[in-house]
């Protein structure tokens, strides 16, 4: 079958809080082909995890409300599925590993039971066989001494081992899409490398697609075929990973890449993006990044200083820029670049 495995179209999600409605996703569109790895990068609170959780419909509701859009898995809109069918999707067609291995396992059930559960939940086999298959999967994810470990409880294991158990659970039914929500953030650096190597190996063996959510550009660089940059509930740039790193278009992406250490600039201080992410409950109209954007600020300075007779980037404060294609598969949402580089098709 051709076409994307997963296609998110114009997904809008709000959170109803006591202080009023907070918009979390402002029309996110993203597609993932079978076997492809897509990196989703952004800072805390930009909507990465909300996007991931919406795919599996695991957002707590209330307070989360899906306002619009669709999430098509092989053409079927997951947002329309009855809860019972959705349970069949979770863990089987699409599975997920979470950020916090220390708290993602139930403290009162053995690790073996928790892995085995995925087989029984999907009626793959009986209890006894599920237990045996759980042990074999723990072995496949390189859990040392899997038979003994399967009988142990989460508190008896390290973070790395628990994350292996989570991965075993997620891969056990050979899903076509794995969502990895910051799978290594909570782990030591050496364990991070081991877990990423394991994910890499599993991805190749199982030929599954991966949606890798992270704030670590290094991980994305080594791992993802395509990378999407999120800012304030929007995807501001999405491109083949190589193209994104060699020619970042959106000023936010440029800022992120410039802030990476070890780029050989020789300066002692790391560069950073000035300003802070605006409050999601009061997002002004226009481009969400305008306040922190060097292009926008330069244009404002020229206008105020009298060098320009008119504000050349006034549009940034008025209109939220749509995504334009600058190179094959390389989209970015920026008025300035659109004016400078021209071309591109929406």
């Amino acid at each position: 079958m051709s076409g994307p495995l997963l296609a998110i179209r114009d997904l809008r999600v709000d959170f109803a809080t006591e202080k009023g409605t907070v918009r979390a996703l402002f029309g996110v569109s993203l597609s993932i082909d079978p076997g492809e790895t897509v990196g989703l990068v952004g800072e805390s609170g930009c909507g990465k995890s909300v996007t991931a959780l919406s795919i599996l419909r695991l957002l707590p509701s209330p307070p989360a409300i899906v306002r619009g859009g669709e999430i098509l898995l092989r053409g079927e809109n997951l947002l329309d599925l009855p809860e019972k069918r959705m349970c069949e999707v979770r863990g089987k067609a699409v599975s997920m590993i979470f950020q916090e291995p220390m708290t993602s396992l139930n403290p009162v059930l053995t690790v073996g039971e928790q892995v085995a559960e995925v087989f029984t939940a999907h009626r793959e086999c009986g209890r006894r066989e599920a237990a045996a298959r759980a042990v074999s999967w723990l072995g496949k994810v390189r859990m040392p001494d899997p038979e003994r470990r399967a009988r142990e409880y989460p508190h008896q294991m390290s973070g790395g081992m628990r994350q292996r158990a989570m991965i075993a659970t997620a891969l056990a039914l050979e899903p076509s899409l794995l969502i990895a929500d910051e799978p290594t953030t909570a782990l030591d650096v050496t364990i991070q490398a081991q877990i990423m190597a394991l994910l890499q190996e599993m991805r190749e063996r199982e030929r599954m697609a991966v949606l890798l959510i992270t704030h670590d550009l290094g991980v994305v660089h080594d791992f993802a075929d395509r990378t999407a940059i999120m800012y304030l509930g929007r995807i501001v740039e999405i491109a083949p990973t190589k193209g994104l790193f060699s020619d970042p278009i959106h000023p936010y992406t440029q800022g992120l890449l410039a802030s990476l250490p070890g780029k050989g600039t020789g300066t002692a201080r790391l560069s950073s993006i000035p300003g802070a992410v605006p409050d999601l409950s009061s997002v002004p109209p226009g481009c969400p990044f305008a306040d922190r954007c060097p292009y926008r600020q330069a244009a404002l300075d020229r206008f105020r200083g009298g060098a320009d007779s008119r504000d050349s980037l006034g549009i940034c404060d008025r209109e939220d820029p749509p995504l334009f294609e600058y190179a094959p598969g390389h989209f970015a949402a920026c008025h300035y670049q659109r004016a400078m580089r021209g071309g591109g098709a929406s």
Binding site: G91, E100, S104, E117, A170
Partner: peptide
């Protein structure tokens, strides 16, 4: 119910009934 392991139990595809009675209630 707001613990991470409840979310991961749901992510496995367990029906809500099992999430509540097997995973949440015991704790």
């Amino acid at each position: 119910i707001r613990q991470d392991y409840i979310a991961s139990a749901r992510a496995k595809g367990l029906p809500e009934r099992k999430v509540v009675y097997r995973h949440a209630m015991r704790n």
